[in-house]
Structures are given as C-alpha cells and as structure tokens.
C-alpha cells in the first residue's frame, strides 16, 4: 500500500503569507518545522512550490507586483540554500538544464526563474548574461538538453530563431524554453522563433521543463 501523502496546504499558505510580508523570522521558523517533519522533496513540492505558484499567478492577475514575486523567489532561494540537502533531494530524473539572459543586461527575470527552479529542487547551470555564441558553446560543452532563455527586447527575442537554427544544423537536440516581455505581449512569438515552450512566469517555467522533458 502506498504511503499516505501528507496535506501540507496550511503550511504552504503560511509560507505564502510570510513571503509576501517579507517575514523572515516567521519564514525560517516555518521552514525549520517543515524540514524537521517532512522530506526535502515533500517540502519542495507541497510547501514552497505551491506558494510560489500562487504568487506567480497573482502577478498574472495584477494582484501582486513583480517586486513581491522577486522578493518571494529570493527568500525561497535563501531557504533552500540554507540547509545541506541530502543528495536524493535533487531531481535526478532530469537532463542537464541551462539558463541565460539572452543578449541583454536585464537579469531580474532570469534571477526569479532561477530561484523558482532551485526552490523546486532542479539543478540548473546559470550562464548569466550571454550572447548567441556563448550560449551555443555552453550548451554544447555542458551537454545541456533543456535551455531556458530570458529576453527583454523584441530584437533579442527574435534572435532565438538563429540559435534554434544553429542547434538544428549541429544536430543538437536542445529544447528551448523562452520567457520575457516580448513573448508575453505576442503570444505566438515563441513558436515563430522555434522555441519548444514559453513560460509566462516562474511557476510556468517549472511546468514547461516538466512538459518538454516528456518530448526528449
């Protein structure tokens, strides 16, 4: 008989409240309590993940601001980094994942997505800001199979198409997940540039990773 899955919704709601009010003391206490009683994966999947998802969804509805999403993701990243997780707490079923800001200096979106992915137990190679040649070489060198790209300007969003062509020409099976303002305002743009998915926010990025893994 399968083990009963504990309902951690109340803890997740408490965590969400602490994140939005930047209650660091309450957050640390709640997190310590959770990690004492439940496995790291349970805390990732049932406490932190749902809280961040609700905050991300609230931003989509205009109910919270990007600065709150950013602070929530940063606090979660700090929590995750504050403990020595056992090796089996990291998702071992995923191929190498890379993340970069594509041809821009605006790092906020990438930083939020990175924090969300880390808080969900995903190992991600953070390439920071990178132009097309750098991204290509990193992906090839690290054997990355899932690449998340954050863009701010329409021009750099369109340049993803060139990167896609280059991967295809080299026979590299890389799934590209894009995000950023141009893709949010033009919902078909991600398909136009040959991306495999588009994430509207941090939680969406996690869902996109899960979805493209099925297609590898």
């Amino acid at each position: 008989m399968a083990a009963k899955i504990p309902d951690l919704t109340p803890q997740s709601r408490q965590l969400e409240e602490a994140l939005l009010t930047v209650d660091r003391v309450g957050l640390v206490a709640l997190f310590a309590e959770c990690t004492k009683s439940y496995s790291p994966l349970q805390v990732f999947e049932q406490v932190i993940g749902p809280a961040l998802t609700r905050i991300g969804d609230a931003w989509e509805r205009g109910e919270v601001a990007l600065s709150e999403v950013y602070m929530a993701s940063r606090l979660c990243e700090e929590l995750v980094d504050s403990v020595a997780w056992p090796a089996n707490s990291v998702r071992g079923d995923l191929p190498p994942i890379g993340l970069a800001v594509f041809e821009d200096y605006h790092m906020l979106g990438k930083r939020i997505v990175y924090a969300f992915l880390r808080a969900a137990g995903l190992e991600v190679a953070d390439y920071g800001r990178a132009v097309a040649d750098e991204v290509f070489e990193k992906v090839r060198g690290d054997g990355v199979q899932i690449l998340l790209l954050s863009t701010l300007m329409l021009r750099s969003a369109l340049r993803v198409r060139d990167l896609r062509s280059r991967f295809d020409a080299e026979g590299l099976d890389v799934k590209i997940i894009v995000g950023g303002a141009p893709y949010r305002f033009d919902p078909q743009l991600w398909q136009e540039v040959g991306a495999d998915a588009m994430g509207r926010n941090g939680p969406d990025a996690i869902a996109c990773v899960e979805a493209v893994v099925q297609r590898l």
């Binding site: 930047v22 600065s67 950013y70 602070m71 200096y105 605006h106 790092m107 906020l108 930083r111």
Partner: peptide, 15 residues
Amino acid sequence: PVMQMGFDHYLDLML
C-alpha cells in the same frame, strides 16, 4: 536605476 545598477540590485536597494 534599473539601468544604473540592474533591476534586481535596484529592488534590493529599494527594499
């Protein structure tokens, strides 16, 4: 300041 210091660092400063 988004350009002067980067968006994330600016939000850190503000907060």
